[in-house]
């Protein structure tokens, strides 16, 4: 409960500060550079969630502990949500700076690939009736899909050059001013905190559903 309240206050502070306190970055028309504080943390959380899901799947395949699969499933679902939000916000930014919502920039290509892979992951989960088999298949598929990701990172950028801003809006670049950097990191923490809160809720929900189903089946 206290975690929820602190998270709410923290997120509100960050949102207010990035609109009222931080100046927009140079080299971008109008206010569009403020997307940095929302779009990048979403993409970061999506990456974190998919990675966590892959690791939890591997743990499930080795130990066969059901909790690991609950974590894998919840993490994949939240990753999908944040990935979708990152796609939408990125697309709005693309319209504002490059002039079109969609132009198959390498970044857009790889994010759509991720959405397709995890879309297929959920389809596979819903199509296998047996619980144990479903968990194993989902784990196997997510590892298999993870192995194609290096090809996306190395192959797709060979084909076209990216318009995605890397220099002035990259936190690793010394060109970013200190005020922006502080609030960017604050926003990153806020989004990660939000993800952890949602993940715990989702895992608890799956655990309760599983218990109810077991109780229901044991009646017969």
């Amino acid at each position: 409960m206290i975690y929820k309240i602190l998270l709410t206050i923290w997120m509100n502070l960050i949102i207010a500060a990035v609109f009222l306190y931080v100046e927009p970055a140079v080299g971008f028309p109008g206010e569009v550079s403020r997307i940095l504080f929302f779009h990048v943390p979403m993409a970061w959380v999506a990456t974190l969630a998919f990675l966590l899901s892959m690791i939890a799947s591997s743990v499930y395949l080795i130990t066969r502990k059901v909790n690991a699969d609950f974590l894998a499933q919840s993490s994949a679902e939240l990753g999908f949500l944040f990935c979708f939000l990152a796609t939408v916000t990125g697309s709005i930014f693309a319209k504002a700076t490059w002039g079109s919502f969609w132009n198959w920039d390498p970044r857009q290509t790889s994010i759509v690939m991720l959405l397709m892979i995890y879309g297929a992951y959920f389809v596979l989960r819903s199509a296998v009736p047996d619980y144990e088999k479903r968990r194993v298949f989902a784990g196997v598929y997510s590892i298999l899909a993870f192995c194609t990701v290096p090809f996306l990172i190395f192959v797709v950028p060979r084909i076209t050059t990216s318009l995605h801003p890397e220099d002035t809006l990259n936190p690793a670049n010394p060109g970013m001013d200190i005020k922006t950097l502080i609030f960017f990191l604050g926003s990153l923490c806020a989004y990660t905190g939000l993800f952890v809160w949602m993940l715990r809720l989702k895992v608890r929900m799956l655990r309760i559903m599983d218990r109810e189903q077991r109780a229901f089946r044991s009646n017969f």
């Binding site: 690939m113 397709m116 892979i117 879309g119 297929a120 389809v123 596979l124 199509a127 296998v128 009736p129 088999k133 298949f137 196997v140 598929y141 298999l144 899909a145 194609t148 090809f151 996306l152 192959v155 797709v156 084909i159």
Partner: peptide
């Protein structure tokens, strides 16, 4: 995998296509 699942025909394309996309582009 899909041989042991329901709705086999449509599922095969849906699951294979994301894995094949890097290969197809190449």
């Amino acid at each position: 995998m899909i041989a042991q699942a329901d709705a086999r025909g449509a599922l095969f394309s849906a699951l294979s296509f994301p894995l094949l996309l890097p290969l197809i582009i190449t």
